[in-house]
Design a protein around this nucleic acid. Structure first.
Length: 424
RNA sequence: GGAGAGGUGGCAGAGUGGUUGAAUGUACCUGACUCGAAAUCAGGCAUACGUGCAAGCGUAUCGAGGGUUCGAAUCCCUCCCUCUCCGCCA
């Protein structure tokens, strides 16, 4: 959520900045609501003040045993007007809130301008795509003989669900374990185990609700609803909701390995083959909750943490700075890491690292006590470190051999019982 | 699932309709005392919003939401959460 003060003080500036990311802010509605809010709020507060002082007088008079009929008459009728004004004020504030909740974050000045992913800017390439002296297969053809089973996944649950068996299942588990160990032992994140089902409030905090409900899976639960997390960014970041954390506990660095559930509404026909785009996938997530002055430093650091995984797994990749038009709702700046997929002859997203600045913190009321002892909003960052399913795809494609086997990167071998390759 | 208890400021803990945003203790900050510290004494110490250049003034907030009332932390209703005992259970 944006700072409403920023909108009041510099409406034109905010509108212009939002336009850069392709968002049309309804400034007229905002101005109309604000004007009415101001009017109704001052009137309401005046009435409340009058009621309060009069009621106090009644109390005093009564305690002295005086007759209060005259004062009572004074406040008669005040109640109705007050009730009406209070109700109207609540309405206006709800409308303003609604308006604000649907506005994306302001892009940071360093974010390249652009409309779509074509305008993203490549920052660097690391690693050289391998040249193959045999006809390469895509991950489905490499994986199927090794235990990747799309048909059974579809039978059990439908499209975009996959069953893994045997060596593939183990490789998948090994990747997650390796990533989690790296983020905790090498990069200093605290390992978390989090709920996979969360309430609506939690999703409001990180910005998935109210705008992106159709992307989520949900379950009826008594009279309310619980949602399956689309990423553990949701649970990890919400740990500081409604908290004022002490300055000395910053930065807070959390990681978790969880499944992620996404309905992938609107992606029909995209990546239908294979396990690039699934309704359920595993991810090791990194979250940092930091002092506002440190968040851009933390962003670069986190990209490095994700890159380290790719380097260690001997996977070529590139780092891309997302343009204003391609960034997610809550992000002020995002780097995507794209891994080389030889069968697609292209780089594909495998990690996304974002600085949300105070956008989520404001929704979450996540604050710290600053140097003056005053509460101030934190900055939140999140990033994949990495998406496990897509990493599995990358391993299968990049490390495939002519005989159909797949070599296991040295760093992963301890997690695979020491074997150097998996063979159909 | 059954029975009971409870949710008040950073923490502890009073308060069951009226000058209560909230006693008291503790923590913290400032000052006095001291060579310094401890102890002691005095003062300060919530958050959000509105309004104002500012000092300030006003409003809201005692788990959440609604209701009764001139007036609610206090009474009524609904919900959420925590704890204790019993049952069940991976």
């Amino acid at each position: 959520m944006l700072d409403i003060q920023a909108l009041r003080n510099d409406l034109d500036g905010v509108v212009a900045t939002l336009k850069k990311r392709g968002f049309e802010f309804d400034a007229d509605t905002f101005t109309r609501l604000e004007n009415e809010r101001k009017l109704v709020q001052t009137r309401t507060q005046d009435l409340q003040a009058k009621r309060n002082t009069t009621s106090k007088q009644i109390g005093i008079a009564k305690s002295k045993g005086e007759d209060v009929a005259a004062i009572m008459a004074e406040v008669a009728g005040l109640g109705e007007q007050l009730k009406a004004d209070e109700a109207r004020l609540a309405e206006i504030q709800a409308e303003l809130q609604q308006l604000l909740l649907n506005v994306p974050n302001l892009p940071h000045a360093s974010v390249p301008a652009g409309k779509s992913e074509e305008d993203n800017v490549e920052v660097r390439r690391v690693g050289t795509p391998r040249s193959f002296d045999f006809e390469i297969k895509d991950h489905t053809d490499v994986g199927t003989p090794l235990g990747l089973d799309f048909d059974t996944g579809a039978k059990l649950s439908g499209a975009r669900f996959t069953l893994m068996k045997g060596q593939i299942a183990r490789l998948h588990r090994a990747l997650a374990q390796f990533m989690l160990d790296t983020q905790t032992e090498r990069h200093g994140y605290t390992e978390c185990y989090t709920p996979y089902l969360v309430n609506a409030e939690t999703l409001f905090g990180t910005g998935q609700l109210p705008k992106f409900e159709e992307d989520l899976f949900s379950l009826a639960h008594n009279d309310s609803k619980l949602y399956l997390i689309p990423t553990s960014e949701v649970t990890l970041t919400n740990t500081v909701r409604d908290e004022i954390v002490p300055l000395e506990s910053l930065p807070i660095k959390l990681t978790a390995h969880t499944p992620c559930f996404r309905s992938e509404a609107g992606s029909y026909g995209k990546d239908t083959k294979g396990m690039i785009r699934q309704h359920q996938f595993d991810k090791v997530e990194m979250v940092q909750i930091v002092h506002p002055e440190k968040s851009y430093e933390a962003l670069e650091e986190m990209v490095g943490h994700a890159e380290h995984i790719l380097q260690t797994l001997e996977l070529p990749y590139r780092v891309v700075s997302l343009c204003t038009g391609d960034m997610g709702f809550g992000a002020a700046k995002t780097y995507d890491l794209e891994v080389w997929l030889p069968a697609q002859n292209t780089y594909r997203e495998i990690s996304s690292v974002s600085n949300c600045e105070a956008f989520q913190a404001r929704r979450l009321q996540a604050r710290f006590r600053n140097e003056n002892g005053k509460p101030e909003l934190l900055h939140t960052l999140n990033g994949s470190g990495l998406a496990v399913g897509r990493t599995l795809v990358a391993i299968l494609e990049n490390h495939q051999q002519a005989d159909g086997s797949v070599t296991i990167p040295a760093a992963l071998q301890p997690y695979m019982g020491g074997i150097e390759r998996i063979v159909p």
